[in-house]
Design a protein around this nucleic acid. Structure first.
Lengths: 353, 353
DNA sequence: GTTAGCACTCAATCGGTTAGAGTGCTAACA
DNA sequence: TGTTAGCACTCTAACCGATTGAGTGCTAAC
């Protein structure tokens, strides 16, 4: 069956109406809309066709129609395509307080990411999720050993992308302040600029021979370094706006709310699931839309997820996701994400040098 | 009216039965219990009295009885009192994996606190909340400036209690590696051991004069120090097990679930509310029980909250809270918290020297 | 190709009935 | 005087059938 222009218009009308009302939409409602001046009966015929094509369904015989995943997919693809044509729709988004937020000196990346999730959730009324930056290719930028207490030292490890981790190490042996400084120099000289893979046995042996007596310290520091790299691999996930799901009855019936909230709390699962989403041929600018069954998390099969990939330079990148009902305002979410991404790029890619 | 022994027994029987069933408990149920060998009629008479005393209520005329806040209060006070008498009940708690958890080298306090919240939530099936450590009297333990990029330095600030914060500072001027080391020495000499209040204008003036040309760097570092102290004042709050509230229907009716989850997400509000709870004359060992209306957070008026104060030495302390329905298993929660506290004490008070 | 009309379906709603749980009261009993 | 059996009473939850209203599909006319 052919999907002619009128059918499309009707489909979009149904989707947009359902977006706002959350109730199945009937033929009368559509016929009274501006732009569609047909009688309910005509609309009904078209709707029957749309249903046959699998784009809409009726929850029950005497109800209006609701879009299917397939229907949404069509809608979203068309929407994104139109944007790509440069038709800068300017749906008068409320200016995100991003600029203000990000331009403030927020030194810790993590803090900034959390804030970002909060702003996104507040602006969209959906749930926002940000995975911490990670990169297979990150390198050791810098290492700092400092004496703390008797028998304990503080090892600060900095990776490319300004990922900083503190490690407090307890030593069995004692080490003087001067020795520590020497060691610090040796380690930095030997390790700076290397990736996890590049720190191999020969590098380690070399370091230990240079370090002389303090091989134990070297081992522990190397452990800390390895841990920092590892940690970065399972970097934290920030969520915000989880309670927003209660705004959408279709997400809160039965145990759904409970399951969703649980999933959001179990950030680990969430992170790896979302993190693993490939960036395969996103229609543009790395923005991906997953609708219903397409979402690779079981408890979110009634949701849609829109993700974007941000980059902090140096190949360090992470994902932002917006989780909402399938009838979410895709246009707004995509626009908001794009705006956020360009702000981020502006700030981080400039900072980097 | 007198609360004789039998009335008490009946009250406790009602509470414990309601704890498990969550349904109003009737006279027949009680009369069939071991130990209480009276006819339903007799129980009814006693229940009428208990109701008159405000210890129990009926949700509606033909329903069983449910404990009131006052009833729970009586129960909890008696329970705690009995414990104080040394009757070590040993309700065979599942051995908490705390020991294992805490003995592992978890360097960052924050990580450990989050883990603790997770273990508590999993063990009790309620929601756990841990406020980060804070202390008005914390002191600067140690300061480390390191060169990072051109124009940027990393300032690591360590407060007593091993609270570590990283600050990346962007400088307008340039500073050599050697100058930075000198500055590092000067700052540590001048600031180590001081509290926020003790770093006053005269100290600052002294430092700046010693620093010579680099007063800008000194200012920025001091800002970073002040921020670290400030941050510690509003230290993060970790929650875990929020979805557990869905196990208790009385907490999820209407918008209650939504409100609760929102409160838990707004950790700031939560932290200050819980943090402000005074430790005024806790019946023992700093454990406090807040029942229903006693809870100082509006959205938790249907909950009970049990808090304990932990100490990391050096006057650094924070609070742990367990949030559950009013019919929570107070015994178990109090025991679990006590066990946790003693583990914590064992570990931290030993480490400290 | 479009539309008016009409019979049909189904979910939601409402009023009424029933079943069951639990009570309070009274009177008998030890 | 305290305890208990018996009974009438109350109230909720569940069930049922009728009604309403929204929305449909189909047919026939335009």
């Amino acid at each position: 069956m052919e999907l002619d222009a009128r059918k499309k218009e009707i489909l979009y009308a149904i989707i947009e109406n359902y977006q706002e009302s959350g109730e199945p939409v009937g033929s009368r409602t559509i016929s009274k809309l501006e732009g569609l001046s047909f009688s309910p009966a005509t609309i009904r015929n078209e709707m029957a066709d749309l249903e046959e094509m699998g784009l809409i369904v009726q929850p029950h015989t005497s109800a209006g129609r609701v879009p299917t995943d397939k229907g949404y997919r069509l809608y979203v693809d068309k929407m994104l395509a139109e944007r790509e044509n440069g038709r800068e729709v300017s749906r008068e988004l409320p200016a995100l307080p991003m600029q203000e937020l990000l331009s403030k000196r927020i030194d810790r990346v993590e803090e900034m990411l959390l804030k970002m999730a909060q702003v996104l959730a507040a602006n969209t009324n959906y749930t926002a999720m940000v995975t911490g930056p990670r990169s297979r290719g990150s390198k050791l930028k810098f290492l700092q050993l400092s004496p703390l207490d008797k028998g304990r030292i503080l090892a600060v490890v900095v990776l490319s992308g300004d990922i900083v981790k503190n490690n407090i190490l307890s030593l069995d042996e004692d080490i003087s302040s001067q020795e520590l400084m020497d060691l610090n120099f040796i380690l930095n000289k030997g390790l700076t600029g290397l990736s996890l893979e590049e720190i191999n046995l020969s590098v380690i042996a070399e370091l230990k021979s240079e370090a002389g007596a303090h091989t134990e310290v070297v081992s522990k520091v190397l452990d800390a370094v390895a841990e920092t790299f590892a940690k970065e691999d399972s970097y934290p996930v920030y969520t915000s706006g989880a309670p927003n799901i209660f705004r959408y009855p279709e997400l809160t019936g039965g145990d759904k709310a409970s399951e969703l909230i649980s999933t959001l709390e179990e950030k680990k699962t969430l992170g790896s699931a979302i993190g693993s989403l490939s960036t395969e041929g996103g229609s543009q600018q790395d923005i991906q839309v997953y609708i219903g069954e397409e979402v690779p998390v079981d408890s979110m099969k009634d949701c849609s997820v829109v993700t974007a990939t941000y980059s902090l330079g140096d190949g360090v990148q992470g994902k932002i996701g917006i989780i909402g009902p399938k009838r979410m305002n895709y246009q707004k979410v995509v626009d908001t994400l794009k705006e956020t991404m360009s702000h981020l790029d502006g700030i981080f890619l400039n900072t980097e040098d």
